[in-house]
Amino acid sequence: MSADDGDTGTVRPAGHPDDADLIEAIVEHAEAESHAAGTGTVGRAAGPTPALSGATVSYLPVATRRYGAVDAEVDDARRSDVDEWGRSERMRSVVRRLYGPMYKYWFRVEWDGLDKIPSDGGALLIANHAGAIPSDAPAIMHGIETELGRPVYGLADYFFRTIPMVGTLWSRTGGVPAHPDNAYRLLHDQQQLAMVFPEGTKATSKTYSDRYRLRRFGRGGFVEIAMRAGVPVIPIAVVGAEESMPILFRLPRVAKALNLPYFPVTANSLLLGPLGYVTYFPSKFKLRVLDPVTFDVEPGLERYSRSRVMDEAEKIRATMQDALHDMLRERRSVWFG
Protein backbone atom coordinates (compact mmCIF):
# COMPACT_ATOMS: atom_id res chain seq x y z
CA MET A 1 0.00 0.00 0.00
CA SER A 2 2.84 2.38 0.75
CA ALA A 3 4.02 2.16 -2.84
CA ASP A 4 0.53 2.78 -4.04
CA ASP A 5 0.30 5.98 -2.10
CA GLY A 6 3.17 7.42 -4.00
CA ASP A 7 1.85 6.34 -7.35
CA THR A 8 -1.67 7.51 -7.02
CA GLY A 9 -0.63 10.77 -5.52
CA THR A 10 -2.77 10.78 -2.46
CA VAL A 11 -2.01 12.55 0.75
CA ARG A 12 -2.77 10.65 3.89
CA PRO A 13 -5.13 12.38 6.25
CA ALA A 14 -3.03 14.20 8.77
CA GLY A 15 -5.01 13.19 11.84
CA HIS A 16 -4.64 9.42 11.58
CA PRO A 17 -1.89 8.41 9.24
CA ASP A 18 -1.72 4.77 10.13
CA ASP A 19 -5.05 3.68 11.38
CA ALA A 20 -4.36 -0.04 11.38
CA ASP A 21 -7.94 -1.12 10.86
CA LEU A 22 -8.47 1.16 7.93
CA ILE A 23 -5.29 0.09 6.19
CA GLU A 24 -6.10 -3.52 6.78
CA ALA A 25 -9.53 -3.06 5.30
CA ILE A 26 -8.08 -1.38 2.24
CA VAL A 27 -5.46 -4.07 1.73
CA GLU A 28 -8.00 -6.80 2.18
CA HIS A 29 -10.29 -5.17 -0.26
CA ALA A 30 -7.54 -4.57 -2.79
CA GLU A 31 -6.52 -8.21 -2.61
CA ALA A 32 -10.05 -9.44 -3.02
CA GLU A 33 -10.46 -7.16 -5.96
CA SER A 34 -7.28 -8.19 -7.72
CA HIS A 35 -8.21 -11.80 -7.20
CA ALA A 36 -11.68 -11.36 -8.64
CA ALA A 37 -10.59 -9.35 -11.63
CA GLY A 38 -7.51 -11.38 -12.35
CA THR A 39 -5.52 -8.23 -12.80
CA GLY A 40 -3.91 -5.40 -10.89
CA THR A 41 -5.98 -3.41 -8.49
CA VAL A 42 -8.05 -0.54 -9.66
CA GLY A 43 -6.11 2.48 -10.67
CA ARG A 44 -2.88 1.34 -9.12
CA ALA A 45 -0.01 2.19 -11.40
CA ALA A 46 1.98 -0.89 -10.40
CA GLY A 47 1.63 -2.64 -13.75
CA PRO A 48 0.18 -1.81 -17.13
CA THR A 49 -3.59 -1.65 -16.95
CA PRO A 50 -5.49 -3.81 -19.41
CA ALA A 51 -6.73 -0.74 -21.22
CA LEU A 52 -3.20 0.38 -21.93
CA SER A 53 -1.54 -2.95 -22.61
CA GLY A 54 -4.37 -4.09 -24.83
CA ALA A 55 -4.57 -7.41 -23.02
CA THR A 56 -7.96 -9.07 -23.18
CA VAL A 57 -8.83 -9.44 -19.57
CA SER A 58 -12.42 -10.08 -18.72
CA TYR A 59 -13.01 -7.02 -16.64
CA LEU A 60 -16.13 -6.87 -14.57
CA PRO A 61 -17.64 -3.64 -13.40
CA VAL A 62 -16.70 -2.95 -9.82
CA ALA A 63 -20.32 -2.97 -8.77
CA THR A 64 -20.59 -6.56 -9.92
CA ARG A 65 -17.27 -7.64 -8.54
CA ARG A 66 -18.03 -6.56 -5.05
CA TYR A 67 -21.66 -7.26 -4.47
CA GLY A 68 -22.86 -9.56 -7.17
CA ALA A 69 -26.16 -7.76 -7.10
CA VAL A 70 -26.19 -7.04 -10.78
CA ASP A 71 -24.85 -10.16 -12.42
CA ALA A 72 -24.12 -13.26 -10.47
CA GLU A 73 -21.56 -14.44 -12.99
CA VAL A 74 -19.44 -13.00 -15.71
CA ASP A 75 -21.45 -12.29 -18.83
CA ASP A 76 -18.92 -13.65 -21.31
CA ALA A 77 -20.68 -12.07 -24.27
CA ARG A 78 -19.61 -8.64 -23.04
CA ARG A 79 -16.77 -6.84 -24.77
CA SER A 80 -16.38 -3.82 -22.49
CA ASP A 81 -16.45 -3.28 -18.76
CA VAL A 82 -19.15 -0.61 -18.82
CA ASP A 83 -21.54 -1.39 -15.99
CA GLU A 84 -25.28 -0.91 -15.90
CA TRP A 85 -24.85 2.73 -14.86
CA GLY A 86 -22.47 3.48 -17.70
CA ARG A 87 -19.41 3.54 -15.44
CA SER A 88 -16.28 1.91 -16.80
CA GLU A 89 -13.59 0.93 -14.32
CA ARG A 90 -11.04 0.95 -17.12
CA MET A 91 -12.01 4.49 -18.04
CA ARG A 92 -11.94 5.49 -14.38
CA SER A 93 -8.44 4.15 -13.97
CA VAL A 94 -7.23 6.11 -16.99
CA VAL A 95 -8.85 9.24 -15.59
CA ARG A 96 -7.33 8.53 -12.19
CA ARG A 97 -3.87 8.35 -13.73
CA LEU A 98 -4.38 11.62 -15.57
CA TYR A 99 -5.98 13.37 -12.64
CA GLY A 100 -3.59 11.98 -10.00
CA PRO A 101 -0.84 14.61 -10.47
CA MET A 102 -3.41 17.41 -10.43
CA TYR A 103 -4.85 16.03 -7.20
CA LYS A 104 -1.44 15.69 -5.61
CA TYR A 105 0.54 18.66 -6.89
CA TRP A 106 -1.98 21.26 -8.00
CA PHE A 107 -4.72 21.11 -5.38
CA ARG A 108 -2.59 19.17 -2.81
CA VAL A 109 -5.75 17.60 -1.48
CA GLU A 110 -5.76 16.86 2.22
CA TRP A 111 -8.42 14.74 3.90
CA ASP A 112 -9.54 14.74 7.47
CA GLY A 113 -11.74 11.96 8.83
CA LEU A 114 -11.68 9.69 5.82
CA ASP A 115 -12.20 6.72 8.15
CA LYS A 116 -15.75 7.91 8.68
CA ILE A 117 -16.60 6.71 5.19
CA PRO A 118 -17.46 3.03 5.45
CA SER A 119 -15.43 0.57 3.40
CA ASP A 120 -18.54 -1.54 2.97
CA GLY A 121 -22.22 -0.83 2.57
CA GLY A 122 -24.15 2.04 1.08
CA ALA A 123 -23.79 5.65 2.11
CA LEU A 124 -24.88 8.95 0.66
CA LEU A 125 -22.04 11.45 0.54
CA ILE A 126 -22.99 15.09 0.37
CA ALA A 127 -20.72 18.09 0.04
CA ASN A 128 -20.76 21.79 -0.54
CA HIS A 129 -20.36 22.68 -4.18
CA ALA A 130 -18.26 25.42 -5.75
CA GLY A 131 -16.42 26.69 -8.79
CA ALA A 132 -17.92 27.71 -12.11
CA ILE A 133 -16.98 24.29 -13.45
CA PRO A 134 -16.97 22.45 -10.14
CA SER A 135 -13.57 21.18 -9.09
CA ASP A 136 -14.76 19.46 -5.92
CA ALA A 137 -16.55 16.46 -7.46
CA PRO A 138 -13.47 14.93 -9.18
CA ALA A 139 -11.35 15.53 -6.07
CA ILE A 140 -13.81 13.74 -3.80
CA MET A 141 -14.32 10.83 -6.20
CA HIS A 142 -10.61 10.43 -6.85
CA GLY A 143 -9.75 10.62 -3.18
CA ILE A 144 -12.24 8.01 -2.04
CA GLU A 145 -11.55 5.66 -4.91
CA THR A 146 -7.80 5.68 -4.36
CA GLU A 147 -7.92 5.64 -0.58
CA LEU A 148 -10.81 3.25 0.00
CA GLY A 149 -10.65 1.35 -3.26
CA ARG A 150 -14.37 1.48 -3.82
CA PRO A 151 -16.27 3.29 -6.55
CA VAL A 152 -18.22 6.48 -6.03
CA TYR A 153 -21.19 7.27 -8.22
CA GLY A 154 -21.76 10.98 -8.65
CA LEU A 155 -25.41 11.94 -8.93
CA ALA A 156 -25.82 15.03 -11.04
CA ASP A 157 -28.26 17.02 -13.11
CA TYR A 158 -29.52 15.19 -16.20
CA PHE A 159 -28.54 18.30 -18.16
CA PHE A 160 -25.14 16.65 -18.72
CA ARG A 161 -26.70 13.86 -20.72
CA THR A 162 -27.76 16.20 -23.50
CA ILE A 163 -24.20 17.40 -24.30
CA PRO A 164 -22.37 15.25 -26.85
CA MET A 165 -19.07 13.74 -25.61
CA VAL A 166 -19.38 15.37 -22.19
CA GLY A 167 -22.43 13.29 -21.34
CA THR A 168 -20.78 10.05 -22.37
CA LEU A 169 -17.51 10.84 -20.62
CA TRP A 170 -19.39 11.86 -17.51
CA SER A 171 -21.31 8.64 -17.52
CA ARG A 172 -18.21 6.46 -18.09
CA THR A 173 -16.43 8.09 -15.19
CA GLY A 174 -19.16 7.40 -12.67
CA GLY A 175 -21.82 10.01 -13.27
CA VAL A 176 -25.45 8.98 -12.85
CA PRO A 177 -28.51 11.16 -13.50
CA ALA A 178 -29.93 12.32 -10.18
CA HIS A 179 -33.22 10.45 -10.09
CA PRO A 180 -34.68 9.14 -6.82
CA ASP A 181 -34.99 5.64 -8.31
CA ASN A 182 -31.35 5.64 -9.35
CA ALA A 183 -30.23 6.77 -5.92
CA TYR A 184 -32.33 4.12 -4.20
CA ARG A 185 -31.02 1.35 -6.41
CA LEU A 186 -27.41 2.39 -5.88
CA LEU A 187 -27.70 2.87 -2.14
CA HIS A 188 -30.13 0.20 -1.11
CA ASP A 189 -30.01 -2.59 -3.69
CA GLN A 190 -26.31 -2.37 -4.52
CA GLN A 191 -24.97 -0.82 -1.31
CA GLN A 192 -22.73 1.61 -3.15
CA LEU A 193 -21.36 5.01 -2.32
CA ALA A 194 -23.29 7.78 -4.04
CA MET A 195 -22.35 11.42 -3.95
CA VAL A 196 -24.68 14.33 -4.34
CA PHE A 197 -24.46 18.10 -3.98
CA PRO A 198 -27.74 19.14 -2.38
CA GLU A 199 -27.31 22.78 -3.34
CA GLY A 200 -27.19 21.94 -7.03
CA THR A 201 -26.35 24.64 -9.57
CA LYS A 202 -27.39 27.31 -7.07
CA ALA A 203 -23.98 26.73 -5.50
CA THR A 204 -21.80 26.55 -8.58
CA SER A 205 -23.38 29.62 -10.11
CA LYS A 206 -22.92 31.85 -7.07
CA THR A 207 -20.42 34.68 -7.32
CA TYR A 208 -17.18 34.94 -5.36
CA SER A 209 -18.74 37.36 -2.88
CA ASP A 210 -21.02 34.55 -1.68
CA ARG A 211 -18.22 32.02 -1.20
CA TYR A 212 -18.66 29.41 1.53
CA ARG A 213 -22.24 30.43 2.16
CA LEU A 214 -24.30 27.32 1.72
CA ARG A 215 -27.34 27.69 -0.48
CA ARG A 216 -30.70 26.10 0.20
CA PHE A 217 -30.44 22.29 0.29
CA GLY A 218 -32.97 21.71 -2.44
CA ARG A 219 -36.17 20.28 -1.03
CA GLY A 220 -34.34 17.89 1.24
CA GLY A 221 -34.67 15.09 -1.26
CA PHE A 222 -31.31 13.65 -0.29
CA VAL A 223 -32.51 13.08 3.28
CA GLU A 224 -35.63 11.32 2.08
CA ILE A 225 -33.62 9.03 -0.18
CA ALA A 226 -31.20 8.14 2.60
CA MET A 227 -34.16 7.41 4.88
CA ARG A 228 -35.81 5.21 2.30
CA ALA A 229 -32.61 3.35 1.48
CA GLY A 230 -31.73 3.01 5.15
CA VAL A 231 -28.20 4.38 4.70
CA PRO A 232 -26.33 7.15 6.52
CA VAL A 233 -25.71 10.61 5.10
CA ILE A 234 -22.04 11.54 5.32
CA PRO A 235 -21.42 15.27 4.94
CA ILE A 236 -18.10 16.45 3.56
CA ALA A 237 -16.96 20.05 3.99
CA VAL A 238 -14.71 21.22 1.17
CA VAL A 239 -12.45 24.24 1.44
CA GLY A 240 -10.48 25.43 -1.58
CA ALA A 241 -12.84 24.73 -4.46
CA GLU A 242 -14.40 28.19 -4.19
CA GLU A 243 -11.08 29.84 -4.99
CA SER A 244 -10.13 27.46 -7.81
CA MET A 245 -12.50 29.06 -10.31
CA PRO A 246 -14.27 32.02 -8.75
CA ILE A 247 -17.17 33.62 -10.61
CA LEU A 248 -17.02 37.40 -10.84
CA PHE A 249 -20.35 37.85 -12.55
CA ARG A 250 -22.80 35.96 -14.76
CA LEU A 251 -24.21 36.69 -18.18
CA PRO A 252 -27.82 35.50 -18.09
CA ARG A 253 -28.53 36.47 -21.70
CA VAL A 254 -25.60 34.51 -23.06
CA ALA A 255 -26.67 31.56 -20.93
CA LYS A 256 -30.16 31.75 -22.34
CA ALA A 257 -28.90 31.98 -25.90
CA LEU A 258 -26.61 28.99 -25.40
CA ASN A 259 -29.25 27.06 -23.49
CA LEU A 260 -26.99 26.67 -20.45
CA PRO A 261 -28.04 26.82 -16.78
CA TYR A 262 -25.69 29.81 -16.28
CA PHE A 263 -22.83 31.48 -18.09
CA PRO A 264 -20.07 32.61 -15.72
CA VAL A 265 -17.30 35.15 -16.21
CA THR A 266 -14.56 33.82 -13.99
CA ALA A 267 -11.34 35.33 -12.68
CA ASN A 268 -9.56 32.56 -14.58
CA SER A 269 -11.10 33.62 -17.87
CA LEU A 270 -10.19 37.27 -17.31
CA LEU A 271 -6.58 36.28 -16.78
CA LEU A 272 -6.24 33.51 -19.33
CA GLY A 273 -9.00 34.11 -21.84
CA PRO A 274 -10.89 31.06 -23.09
CA LEU A 275 -8.17 28.89 -21.56
CA GLY A 276 -9.46 30.07 -18.19
CA TYR A 277 -12.48 27.82 -18.54
CA VAL A 278 -10.26 24.76 -18.41
CA THR A 279 -7.66 26.01 -15.94
CA TYR A 280 -8.13 26.08 -12.20
CA PHE A 281 -6.18 28.25 -9.78
CA PRO A 282 -3.96 26.11 -7.53
CA SER A 283 -5.87 26.66 -4.32
CA LYS A 284 -5.16 24.32 -1.44
CA PHE A 285 -7.95 21.75 -0.99
CA LYS A 286 -8.92 20.62 2.45
CA LEU A 287 -11.72 18.12 2.88
CA ARG A 288 -13.22 17.25 6.21
CA VAL A 289 -15.54 14.29 6.55
CA LEU A 290 -18.13 15.01 9.23
CA ASP A 291 -19.87 12.47 11.43
CA PRO A 292 -22.30 10.23 9.55
CA VAL A 293 -25.92 11.11 10.15
CA THR A 294 -28.32 8.21 10.57
CA PHE A 295 -32.06 8.52 10.74
CA ASP A 296 -34.17 6.65 13.19
CA VAL A 297 -36.95 5.82 10.75
CA GLU A 298 -38.27 2.72 9.08
CA PRO A 299 -36.62 2.30 5.66
CA GLY A 300 -38.48 1.49 2.49
CA LEU A 301 -41.46 3.79 2.93
CA GLU A 302 -42.92 5.64 0.00
CA ARG A 303 -43.10 8.92 1.90
CA TYR A 304 -41.63 10.46 5.02
CA SER A 305 -42.82 13.29 7.17
CA ARG A 306 -42.10 16.50 5.27
CA SER A 307 -41.26 18.42 8.42
CA ARG A 308 -38.90 15.71 9.64
CA VAL A 309 -37.12 15.65 6.27
CA MET A 310 -36.76 19.43 6.16
CA ASP A 311 -35.56 19.55 9.78
CA GLU A 312 -32.91 16.93 9.16
CA ALA A 313 -31.76 18.64 5.97
CA GLU A 314 -31.52 21.95 7.78
CA LYS A 315 -29.62 20.36 10.66
CA ILE A 316 -27.08 18.84 8.27
CA ARG A 317 -26.75 22.12 6.47
CA ALA A 318 -26.06 23.95 9.73
CA THR A 319 -23.42 21.37 10.72
CA MET A 320 -21.70 21.76 7.37
CA GLN A 321 -21.79 25.54 7.56
CA ASP A 322 -20.23 25.41 11.05
CA ALA A 323 -17.54 23.03 9.84
CA LEU A 324 -16.74 25.34 6.93
CA HIS A 325 -16.45 28.34 9.23
CA ASP A 326 -14.24 26.32 11.52
CA MET A 327 -11.96 25.28 8.69
CA LEU A 328 -11.80 28.82 7.32
CA ARG A 329 -10.84 30.15 10.75
CA GLU A 330 -7.88 27.80 10.77
CA ARG A 331 -6.86 28.54 7.21
CA ARG A 332 -4.03 31.03 6.88
CA SER A 333 -3.58 31.08 3.12
CA VAL A 334 -5.81 30.30 0.18
CA TRP A 335 -2.85 28.77 -1.67
CA PHE A 336 -0.99 27.03 1.12
CA GLY A 337 -3.76 26.11 3.52
Binding site: E84, W85, Y158, F159, R161, T162, V176, P177, H179, D181, N182, R185
Partner: peptide, 12 residues
Protein backbone atom coordinates in the same frame (compact mmCIF):
# COMPACT_ATOMS: atom_id res chain seq x y z
CA UNK B 1 -35.33 11.29 -22.84
CA UNK B 2 -32.61 12.86 -20.74
CA UNK B 3 -34.73 12.94 -17.59
CA UNK B 4 -35.42 9.21 -17.64
CA UNK B 5 -34.45 7.05 -14.70
CA UNK B 6 -31.76 4.52 -15.53
CA UNK B 7 -34.34 1.77 -15.01
CA UNK B 8 -38.03 2.16 -15.74
CA UNK B 9 -40.40 0.20 -13.56
CA UNK B 10 -43.78 -0.83 -14.87
CA UNK B 11 -45.66 1.87 -12.98
CA UNK B 12 -43.35 4.69 -14.11
Amino acid sequence: AEQDPTWFREED
